[in-house]
């Protein structure tokens, strides 16, 4: 009995979450998809590493860190772009995007250097 209620509760929770998320602006959704894309790529690399071994360890690290780093930067971008976030109210989204691009370029310069 209790199980069905929990399932129902969970279903209700997901329902409310989905309905709430639908209201999210499209540009934030794009960032979310991008973050998921980066995270999944990182996970695939980790899985490969566990199967094969970590021999070109720097290559593995740079691959994973590239994904994780870009995901983190995307999260930061999302925070800054979100209009509900009052903290960054004065910051235009274009400026945030410029920061995102710059940080990504610097990050990947380091990643490329580390790739070997």
């Amino acid at each position: 009995m209790g199980k069905t209620t929990t399932t129902k509760d969970a279903q209700a929770l997901f329902q409310s979450l989905r309905s709430a998320y639908v209201a999210t602006p499209t540009n934030l959704k794009i960032i979310d998809v991008y973050i998921i894309f980066a995270a999944v790529t990182a996970v695939i690399q980790v899985v490969y590493m566990t199967i094969v071994g970590s021999f070109p360890f720097n290559s593995f690290l740079s691959g994973v860190l590239s994904c994780v780093g870009t995901a983190v930067l995307a999260v930061c971008l999302r925070i800054q772009v979100n209009k509900d976030n009052k903290e960054f109210k004065d910051l235009p989204p274009e400026r945030a995007f410029a920061d995102f691009v710059l940080c990504n370029l610097v990050l990947h310069l380091v990643i490329m250097n580390f790739l070997g």
Binding site: Y34, I36, A38, V40, T41, I44, Y48
Partner: peptide
């Protein structure tokens, strides 16, 4: 090949 899958997923999501 697997690494490209999320990219396709990203484009599909878009």
């Amino acid at each position: 090949g697997l690494v490209f899958l999320p990219l396709i997923g990203f484009l599909v999501g878009l």
